[in-house]
Amino acid sequence: MKTIRTSIIGFGAIGQGVAEVLLLKKEYLRSLGLEVRVVAVADSKGATFNPNGVDLAKCLVRKRETGTVALEKLSGLELIKRLDHELVIETTPTNIETGGVGLQNMRAAFETGKDVVTSNKGPLTLKYGELQEAAKAAGSKFRFEASVGGAMPIINLVNEVLAGNEVKGIKGILNGTCNYILSRMLEEKASYKDILAESMELGIAETDPSYDVEGIDTACKLVILANALFGLDATYNDVEVTGITKITPDALEMAQENGYVIKLIGEVSRKGLQVAPRLVPIKHPLAVGGTLNVASVDTELAGEITVTGKGAGPIETASAILSDLISIYREC
């Protein structure tokens, strides 16, 4: 049995989802020869830690009841630096301007020789090259499947399952909120504003939806895909971005009459990175509705491969984090 001591830094929707999945999959992980021992959990107010393992079920209850998991006034960053462990699960908020605390956490993890599994797009969008270098220099593993498309497997699919294939291009729907809004506008023949309001009510769009509807979130994910699968060192500024705020119900209807749906498509190829509303033939594999994400990878040998799945949600995203964890420790 191999013991993996891990911290969960960031205990919001995703961090808690990870805790639940680890509890749920404890026996399964054992059957793979893996004992995942969470030695620290941190949120913005502090942390709890125990070198012999914290009680995850109690952490979840405490977070729900008191609003914080903290028992000590210690930050996640300090714990990464000071506490002996193998893996940092980094699930703090995405910040694409500075990289936020996530960037500091990842740097500290690599400086102290730890592996990182994350769902946080900010550091990956801003400092991909630097972080990869740091991981390499430390001999650390660095995985971020959950940062793009939630449960939809794309990075590991291309890097592992399709290994050996040169990737010629990737295009897809990488933001569930935009997909939901466009799908509903067509169904209801309703304006962008009305459906945006509905999405906020349902909790599908955030109170400040600009990050999603202006195409910024899609652009960040595109940058991560370009870097991870194309071997680029692109940043957000390399993407030409147009969002969905100008789309009208009339345009959606006209498109439909001519055999198309309108989707916010992120596309990366040798010619560059672009996010824009596009016409997608109704029967095309990319024409998925609701909040689904989808990506189509054009590969040298295998041709076009399309994957679709839930792009968000705590358990769905935690599933991608779990698969990263397993693939790191099962293989070595």
């Binding site: 509303p277 016409l279 990319l286």
Partner: peptide, 8 residues
């Protein structure tokens, strides 16, 4: 200042 939506 028109938005142009092209096919994939």
């Amino acid at each position: 200042d028109l938005l142009m939506v092209l096919p994939i």
